[in-house]
Write a protein that binds this DNA or RNA. Structure first.
Length: 431
RNA sequence: GCUGAGGUAGCCUAGUCCGGUAAGGCGCCAGCCUUGAAAGCUGGUGGCGAUUCCGCCACGGGAGUUCAAAUCUCCCCCUCAGCGCCA
C-alpha cells in the first residue's frame, strides 16, 4: 500500500510514477482515492461536530442530575442527535472504506531504474556469467533424464494428484535436500538466520503480502478454514512481525526461509513440459530482509549477489535481467530475475526472482519502525529473493550435467551433502 | 471437539458486578540536579482531522439499548489453560 500521506502531499509525483506503468486504470484509481479522501475529510468534520455537541450535552445532563437541577430541555435536544449522527457516521465509514479499498488496489511506486517495457521480452539484461552449452536436441529434457534414471513418476502422480505433481524417488530426493542445505549454508555464512515458517496463513496477514488477484489464481485455500497454503516462504516471513514495532537498531533482519511452496496457477507453455519446471509444489530456500528505508537499495544488490553465488558455485551459466515496467507486478518497486541457461531448451529460464518491495508490504502488514520500544511513523522496507527453488534448480542441473550414458554428474559443491556421491545413476530396482 | 479464563496505549496492569471526561506502573523523551553518568525530582509520551485556539476517535471486531457504553444485551474473531483425540 502506498503511503496516503505521500498521495496527499505529492500527488503529481505519485501520478507520474503510476503513469509509467502505461495502464490508465492506475491514474484513474489515484484520482478516485484523492476524491474519496477529500469527501471523507469533509464528512469526518461534520461527524465530529455532531459528536462534539452530543458529548457536550451529555456532560451537562450528568452535571444537572448530580445537582438535581432540571435537564429536560437538554435531554430533548440530545434525543434528536443519534439519528443525525447515525446517518453521517455511516456515510463517513463508507467513504473511508471506499478510499482504503481504492488505495490498496494501487500498485507500489517503481524505482527510477526500472526500464520501460510491455512484457518479459523487454526486460533488460544487466549481467551474464558462464559459458552456455550448446547441446540442443541432442540432449534429453530434464524430465526424460529423470525418467531414464527411474527417479521420477509423472504419470502415476497425475493419477493421484493431477497434472503438475510428481513423485521423486531415489538419489534425486537426496540431491533436492542437498541443494536446500547448500543454499542454506551459504546464506548462514552471510548472516542469515534459517527459519522454518508455517505452511499456511490466515487471509488477513496474507492480504498484507500479496496481490488480491493471487487469492483467485495462485493460492490453494483449505476448505472450510480461513487458511491458505503458502505460495512461497516470503509470505509467512513478511508476516512474521505483523502489527509490530521493529527496533531500528536491530535492523537489518536477514532471514533464510525453507519451505515447500504451493501454487495453483502454473501456466503450461513451451517445450519439454513434462518435468518439474512448472509444478504445483516445490521446495525453496528464500532470502528475506527487513531493513531501514535508506538501506534497501544496497540490500537488493546483496540479495542478488547471494543468488548469483548459488548458481556460480553450482557451475550453472546464467544472466540477470532488470525486470521492466510491464512485467514487474504490483508489489515490487524493483526486481531482478536470474535466468539460468537450459542447454536442451537453448534458452535462459527464470530460476530466481529478487525484489525490493520498499514499504509496500510492511505498511499493509502494520509493521512500523521504532527505537527502544517507542513507536515511530516510519515503515521498514522488505526485500525477498530466491536462493534456490529446488524444482528449477534440479531441472537445470539435470539438463546441464547429464551424460551420454544417462547418468548425471553431481556438481562438486553438492557432493559433501551426499556422502561424496559423484553421480546419479540408474539403480537396479524398478518402480 | 468440550469446559473455563482472558483480549485496555510500545509493554504490563486497574476499572466491568453498580453506565457519566480511561487510573497506575515500566519503557521512552525533555527539563532540573551533577565535572559526566546513574539515582532522584518535575513534566511529557496513542490515532485521525483541523492546525490559531481545538475537536473527534481509540478498551479484540460488529450490531443493539441509552442523552451517554471499556462497563448492559446479542453475534462473531482471536489467545491461553485444563480435558479429549493424536504424529
Amino acid at each position: 500500500m502506498i503511503d496516503l500521506d505521500l498521495v496527499r502531499k505529492e500527488p503529481a509525483k505519485v501520478e507520474e510514477n503510476l503513469a509509467r506503468r502505461k495502464n490508465p486504470v492506475y491514474v484513474r484509481l489515484l484520482a478516485e482515492v484523492r476524491e474519496k479522501d477529500a469527501e471523507w475529510r469533509t464528512c469526518l468534520q461534520q461527524a465530529d461536530e455532531v459528536r462534539r455537541r452530543r458529548n457536550d450535552l451529555s456532560r451537562r445532563i450528568a452535571e444537572a442530575r448530580t445537582k438535581a437541577t432540571p435537564s429536560e430541555e437538554l435531554e430533548s435536544e440530545a434525543k434528536k442527535l443519534p439519528d443525525t449522527l447515525r446517518a453521517i457516521e455511516s456515510q463517513e465509514s463508507e467513504l473511508l472504506h471506499a478510499r482504503d479499498a481504492l488505495l490498496r488496489r494501487l500498485p507500489n511506486l517503481m524505482d527510477d531504474s526500472v526500464p520501460f517495457g510491455t512484457d518479459d521480452s523487454q526486460n533488460v539484461v544487466v549481467s551474464t556469467w558462464g559459458e552456455p552449452l550448446h547441446g540442443g536436441a541432442a540432449l534429453k529434457s530434464h524430465g526424460e533424464v529423470l525418467e531414464g534414471l527411474g527417479m521420477a513418476e509423472f504419470d502415476r502422480a497425475r493419477r493421484v494428484s493431477g497434472a503438475g505433481f510428481y513423485y521423486l524417488r531415489g538419489a534425486v530426493v537426496l540431491l533436492d535436500l542437498a541443494l536446500q542445505r547448500f543454499a542454506l549454508d551459504l546464506l548462514a555464512g552471510r548472516g542469515f538466520t534459517p527459519v522454518a515458517p508455517p505452511y499456511v496463513l490466515r487471509r488477513a496477514p496474507y492480504e498484507g503480502v500479496t496481490d488480491l488477484a493471487d487469492f483467485e489464481n495462485v493460492m490453494y485455500k483449505l476448505e472450510a478454514e480461513d487458511l491458505y497454503l503458502i505460495a512461497t516462504s516470503e509470505h509467512p516471513l513478511a508476516a512474521l512481525y505483523l502489527g509490530e514495532i521493529l527496533d531500528e537498531d536491530a535492523l537489518p533482519i536477514r532471514l533464510a526461509g525453507v519451505s515447500p511452496c504451493f501454487r495453483k496457477e502454473i501456466g503450461g507453455h513451451g517445450v519439454d513440459q513434462k518435468g518439474i519446471f512448472r509444478v504445483h509444489q516445490f521446495q525453496k530456500v528464500e532470502q528475506f530482509v527487513f531493513c531501514r528505508p535508506e538501506d534497501s537499495a544496497t540490500i537488493l544488490e546483496e540479495l542478488r549477489a547471494n543468488a548469483e553465488e548459488v548458481f556460480r558455485q553450482l557451475g550453472v551459466p546464467y544472466r540477470v535481467v532488470n525486470v521492466c515496467t510491464g512485467d514487474l507486478g504490483s508489489v515490487a518497486a524493483k526486481k531482478y530475475d536470474v535466468e539460468a541457461w537450459f542447454p536442451r531448451q537453448q534458452a535462459f529460464r527464470e530460476v530466481v526472482s529478487c525484489s525490493n518491495c520498499t514499504d509496500y508490504q510492511a505498511r499493509r502488514l502494520g509493521i512500523r519502525l521504532g527505537k527502544a520500544g517507542r513507536p515511530g511513523k516510519l515503515v521498514p522496507h522488505t526485500l525477498n529473493s530466491t536462493a534456490v527453488a529446488t524444482s528449477r534448480g534440479l531441472a537445470v542441473i539435470l539438463e546441464q550435467y547429464q551424460q551420454p550414458d544417462g547418468s548425471v554428474t553431481i556438481p562438486e559443491v553438492l557432493r559433501p551433502y551426499l556422502g561424496g556421491l559423484r553421480a546419479l545413476v540408474r539403480s537396479g530396482a524398478s518402480l
